[in-house]
Design a binder for these strands. Structure first.
Lengths: 94, 94, 94, 94
DNA sequence: ACTCCAATACTTTAGC
DNA sequence: GCTAAAGTATTGGAGT
């Protein structure tokens, strides 16, 4: 993180304020940039669905397939977490 | 992506089915890859908010600011005008 | 829904405005009342968890149990919905 | 809910376990009942919003108004002040 | 335009 | 008290 340049004309408080302002602006702009990227990817996804649809696939069914695959992936973590909870409840874990 | 080989043993219909299956798989995998990227960016955004919070900024206000910057001026005026009307109606303003 | 009383002193437009105002206020108050009730129930739920905890039960494990039971209930609807989607995709429905 | 009968054949430990089980079941069912009630009220709220919408009101603005009414004045001023500061810093105001 | 569903954001709660 | 996670509410987008 760059230090705030303290110009002669500024009081210490003004410098602090200026610094916070710049810092805030930097955070906001970083987030906005990331959100643009995210939006671009979301648009890409839409395009792929549209292309699939153009090739005769049922988009809703595709979404279901993708969702189920993701659930399968998530489920293991989930199951492990549940198991842990139970073992803890039964005093088998710390 | 390999093309669907039309083996001697396959009927034309089987080939078509195999092709559709491969094509579907390809679409699904492209989407899954894109969703992973999207997730990564979403995580980055979270990190930035966390960092901002660690520097003393109010995350909720930051979100508001970012939302407002995204709205165009007309839309914003529109919303504010409706809100004002309602607040008036409910005696929340002058 | 009660009609808006049109007082002699009011113009038609004022009456309309007054009516809308009263109507808005009525809607808002109905919602606020419902939200209070909802809050009260949420508090009751908290109390039950606290009581269970006081009787030596593990709250997190209880939440897990409740969530799983709810999933079982939801799952049937979900499975039916998925089945429908597939049947549709395969041209077996509508 | 029946109390746990302590049958001759049961050891004290078994009885304790049975009792705990029944007690747990009772807690879980109480919570599930309460959650159903909560859900019913949430649905009622949705209905009221839908009705308001059908009468030409802007649901989003209504939600905002309700949220603001819930905040106490101090808190509201606080939030507005932070927001203003941030908007200033980003050149969105004066 | 409107409904429905998925995604996001916010709030609350549990554990450290 | 703070961080991490769950649950809940709100928003936006896709399909009809």
């Amino acid at each position: 993180m760059p230090t705030a340049a303290l110009r002669k004309e500024e009081s210490v408080e003004q410098a602090a304020t200026t610094f916070a302002k710049d810092q805030l602006r930097a955070f906001v702009e970083r987030i906005e940039r990331l959100e643009e990227e995210k939006k671009a990817i979301a648009d890409d996804i839409k395009d792929v669905f549209a292309e699939a649809k153009g090739n005769g696939f049922d988009v809703k069914a595709m979404r279901t397939v993708i969702r189920l695959r993701k659930q399968d992936a998530d489920e293991r973590r989930e199951q492990e977490s549940i198991l842990e909870t139970y073992m803890h409840a039964l005093g088998m874990l710390a």
